[in-house]
Design a protein around this nucleic acid. Structure first.
Length: 205
DNA sequence: CGGGAGATGGGCT
DNA sequence: GCCCATCTCCCGA
């Protein structure tokens, strides 16, 4: 039986290790509309000495405070006036590091995910993707599909009944591809993006 | 096909 | 005012 990842799990790994280790795990969100879940297939690491990280320069604001919380805390932020991105804080409290969840392979609640994407005001309607159940292939899109918003910011994923990550199969090192991050203007060359080799649900090659 | 532009709004990363 | 860890559409080839 899959178990909810606990506090010890999150705090025992470095943020880079956590980024790789979360691949293959299951993200679950339960809310009024139902349960959605998916296997994490793509992540990116953001470290505290990294110009692309929201915690770079150490300043804590209302927006980024969750990235400084203890490992295993959710950090959700709003971007491009349209989307949310879901991260898991890494390292210990006071150190601003996080893992961005970029893509999921849907498991539970696929119809609900489809509905949410179809019903959006600003449309997310790549019909080919929706037919192929690619409804979580990107950080903004998976937040729509799983209904993750600012309300889900700052939750302790190891101690929460509606939003958490569970164990699943462990991946071999050779199933993980390491490459550069996507969409950045700063520190774009760092090899901090990880995804499951040959998995069709990643956001892009 | 690949590249570029546009939508859109909160926080100044 | 301008930036942005996005996504889709549309254009030219």
């Amino acid at each position: 039986m899959d178990k909810i990842l606990n506090k010890q799990y999150y705090s025992s790994l470095s943020t880079l290790e956590l980024s790789k280790n979360l691949l293959g795990k299951i993200l679950v969100h339960k809310d009024d509309e139902g349960t959605t879940s998916g296997m994490i297939v793509e992540t990116e690491a953001y470290l505290c000495d990294d110009p692309a990280c929201h915690a770079y320069n150490g300043k804590v604001s209302l927006r980024n405070k969750s990235v400084f919380e203890e490992a295993g805390t959710s950090y959700v932020y709003f971007i491009y006036g349209t989307y949310f991105c879901f991260n898991v804080a890494g390292n210990r409290a006071g150190i601003g590091e996080a893992v961005l969840i970029r893509a999921l392979e849907p498991i539970e609640g696929i119809e609900l995910m489809r509905e949410r994407i179809m019903n959006r005001k600003r449309k997310l309607l790549n019909i080919e993707d929706i037919i192929n159940t690619k409804v979580c292939n990107g950080p903004g899109k998976l937040c729509v599909a799983m209904n993750i918003t600012k309300n889900e910011d700052g939750l302790r994923l190891f101690d929460n009944k509606s939003l958490f990550i569970t164990t699943a199969k462990n991946l071999e090192e050779n199933e993980i591809v390491t490459t550069t991050r996507i969409g950045l203007t700063k520190a774009a060359e760092k090899p901090y993006r990880f995804y499951i080799k040959d998995n069709p649900f990643i956001s892009k090659k």
